[in-house]
Design a protein around this nucleic acid. Sequence first.
DNA 1: TATTAATATGACCAGGCAGTCACATGACTG
DNA 2: CAGTCATGTGACTGCCTGGTCATATTAATA
Lengths: 216, 216
Amino acid sequence: MPTQTFFNLPEHKRQAIIDIAIEEFAEHDYKGVSISRIVERAGIAKGSFYQYFQDKKDLHLYLLQVAGEKKLELISTLQRPPGQGSFFDTYRWMMSAGIQFEAAHPELSRMAYRALYGDLPHRDETYARMKQQAHEYMQATIRQAIERGDLDPKIDPDMAAFVFTVISTEMGNHLFRRLGINPLELPEKRFKWNLEEIQPAFDQLFYILEKGMGPK
Amino acid sequence: MPTQTFFNLPEHKRQAIIDIAIEEFAEHDYKGVSISRIVERAGIAKGSFYQYFQDKKDLHLYLLQVAGEKKLELISTLQRPPGQGSFFDTYRWMMSAGIQFEAAHPELSRMAYRALYGDLPHRDETYARMKQQAHEYMQATIRQAIERGDLDPKIDPDMAAFVFTVISTEMGNHLFRRLGINPLELPEKRFKWNLEEIQPAFDQLFYILEKGMGPK
DNA sequence: TATTAATATGACCAGGCAGTCACATGACTG
DNA sequence: CAGTCATGTGACTGCCTGGTCATATTAATA
């Protein structure tokens, strides 16, 4: 965690450091992120940086925490699907929320994606588990949905969880590519993100997930 | 491409360099691979290395080429699915072939995976396109399968190609995790790779892909 | 104002890197 | 044997890194 000194900083200065650091961790992988570059861009001395953060890892973990908080923050503003939604409705809402977060904070998403799939010297500490946990959570949800009659009882929960997890992870990338958008350019280009635009894609995806691809 | 000098090397020495370098590119991402470490492990002088390869990138591209050749080599030994297989049969065979390659050459797979999804200074040169090409090829195949009546005409080819592509890419990882195997330890542990063992997983996956997850 | 505590600074350190080059070695030729 | 050419070598360069620390500056307190 950052030191008290960091939190004593004037708001705008603190935020500038965070923003720049996030940009760097979105643009480069862990090894590629240079503290020297960050302090230069932020206009602070190297020594100051190390009065705010213990080391590079400390900064990285903090930024990931910030990303998590931002995501919760955004999701809490979104309306939940009406009533006792079916599994597919709920899941569609979750996925849509994830993609809205990607659109609103592409740098944060990219950083988090790197943390999950990139090379980290401190990977074992939390992140391999994050994937495992997401998988197990999904699996449990699927089991419940099967019991409630929302899903075909013949499917294998482990395999279904795999399919859902891997699709959610990559769906954002796919949608942006499909729409010809570079997510990292989203904020500066002030692209008008139109949720309606992606509904057809969701319809198509969930048709496949629900009914399969085989001939009827 | 490596120099003639490299190809003049005695077989065992050349192979040792290749093997060690592949190990390094499997273990570390591009930035993390150290030529100094490679030459030390291989017991050759730094100067010799640069008489074999132009630079780090030259080595990397060559190793990727080797990986491609090895994959074709292995696949050509596998029996094709009998007769005019349906789309699902063919695709199941392709996916199974991919996983057999992963099991037989986990380091090569890991290196290739890194090349596709990791950070490369020379990424633009070919690799972003590789993904795009795979997607387009899959999409075309799906269109044909629809015309032949092998797939539900109501599905969106683009979305279906996305689902197939992302699942094939990660299916190997998923299977190994499910079986409690670390693919990188496969070769040294001489794990007896039993194809039968993964058939149930394929059955489960293709049930989902064909019939979907929704209640019937 | 004098004293103390908090914060800012950038030259500096040790280590690692990719890549170079002047030279050494060995093998083959006339 | 001398001469030539391919190959091997590792000290070296220049660069960048994460991280340190003695010192300077500023703010707070008495």
